[in-house]
Structure formats: C-alpha cells, structure tokens
Design a protein around this nucleic acid. Structure first.
Lengths: 131, 131
DNA sequence: ATAACATGTTATGTTTTTTAACATAAAAAA
DNA sequence: TTTTTTATGTTAAAAAACATAACATGTTAT
C-alpha cells in the first residue's frame, strides 16, 4: 500500500535523471510534452522525477532504440493507462482517498529507504566497506 | 557486489535531502563538517547525496533526538568505520580494485532501479494505479 | 558566568534549470 | 523529388537552488 509512495515520490532533479537515463534534458522534456511522463515540480518550478518516471524514461529509450517512433511508443505506453484511469476512477468512486501528512510521508519514506537495498546487505558489510 | 553502487551513488541534491530527512541545510552541512557524511560533489561543486548518506543522516537525527551530542554520535557512528578502514585496506591490498566505466555503472543502476521496489508490484498494479 | 555547542540568519557569488526560440538531419508524405 | 513532420541540438535570459563564510543566539556543561 505505502509502497507506491516511494516510487512516485519526486526525488531527482534534471541533472541526476540525465545521468541515470543517459538522455538529454531536451529529450526528457520532449517526452514530457508527449505525456510519457509527468514529473512533479518543486516550489520553484523545477522538475522533480520519481523512480517511476525514470523507469518510464528507460522504457521510452529502449523502444526508441528498437526503432519505434513516438506515435508507436505512445500507443504502447499510454494505452493501458487509459484503461487504468477507468478502473481507478471506478475504484476511487467507491473508497475515499487516503491522505498523508508530510510527517507521515517522511516516516514511510524513511523506513522504505532504509529497507531499499536491504537485501544487498550481508550483515553490515556495506558499513564496513563503504563508510 | 554491484549492490553497493546503488546505495553509494550520488543522486540527491540538498533540497531533496532536506525534505527526506527533515533537517536544515545548515544541519546537513554541519554533520558533514564533522565527517558523519561525505557526500559527493557535482561538476559544479554541488553536494550530491547517496542513499547511504540519507541513512546516516537519519541515524544522526535519531541519536540527537535521544539527547546524544556530536562527540557521542561520532564515537557511535564512526567507530566501526575505523575498523572498517582496516579490514578494507587489508582486503584492498589483496585484490585489485574493480573499476567501472560510466556506461557500466548506468546499466547496473538501471537494472537495480528497475528492481528497486519490485517486490511491491503485484503484477503491474502500480502501472494501473500510478501511471 | 563562561565557554563550547548546535543551529539560525544573512550576504554574496556560482551553478543549474526553465522556457522559448531557432536550427537541422532524417524520415514520411505529397 | 520536393515538402512536411519528427526528434533532437543549441542558445540566451531569467529564476531558483546551492555554496561559503561570517556573525548571531539559545542551550548545555564546567
């Protein structure tokens, strides 16, 4: 339930996303224009990308590498979303939206960050090897 | 092996870290002054924090909340690191350091980002609910 | 009461990001 | 084969974020 919060949380600025995806800022904004991603904004209007956004960008990149053009990519990536909107609106009509305070979000995120990659830790090895 | 890369990778700028940890920029830099974290820098000298840095900051915060002062926190958090340095230097003396190209790092990270939180996905539900 | 601590505040300079426009090579359509 | 559309590069100006450093201040310990 709370798991989605992490992956949709606006965390990364443009510069980081460029490096993670190896896409240019121009490309990343272009894909946004085409509604393939919808990053959040900071108070100062800076784009902030989530892990889901990055996933999506990497999908776009893969598809482009396969020679598929924007039109095709949109069909592929945005098609089950229209369905999703339907099922979501249906559902959200049924149950009331659960809201979180900033504090609650922070706590959830903290737990999840601590757990993220936990499975990689063989009993504190990381602490030994990486200050 | 590659797992550490993710947690030590410089990803988050100050603003994000402030929100994730609920610490002030001043505090975060202060803890750095005391060597409790050692964030990387961007080309333009901006601090970039890793998941490990954030973990560490949250540890510091907890300890402070418990009334422990910097001196104590340093003892607690930096003590097994000196040991770590030993065992690390020992080991690194034995085996040659494995280096990665930017490209390799990107690929590793991509895989790990895709996997990060994978266990939260019940067969694409997220895609349905959180485009 | 004094000193040391932990953090806030302010000032100034630098880096990063944004938006918007213009440019262009390659692909698609005419 | 021209013409149009696509996908992306480049550039410029303004705004936001961040860096460092100095000074200020409420607490805690001596």
């Amino acid at each position: 339930m709370s798991s989605q919060i992490r992956r949709t949380m606006p965390l990364f600025p443009m510069g980081t996303v460029m490096k993670l995806t190896d896409l240019s800022a121009r490309q990343i904004r272009y894909y946004e224009q085409h509604h393939l991603i919808t990053p959040d904004r900071s108070d100062g209007n800076r784009r902030l990308y989530s892990l889901n956004d990055i996933d999506r960008l990497l999908e776009v990149k893969d598809l482009l590498d396969q020679g598929i053009n924007m039109a095709g990519i949109k069909k592929i990536l945005l098609k089950d979303e229209s369905q999703a909107v339907q099922s979501e609106t249906k559902e959200s009509g049924a149950k009331p939206k659960k809201e979180f305070t900033d504090e609650e979000l922070r706590k959830l995120l903290r737990k999840e960050l601590i757990n993220a990659g936990r499975f990689n830790r063989s009993s504190g090895m990381d602490r030994r090897f990486f200050h």
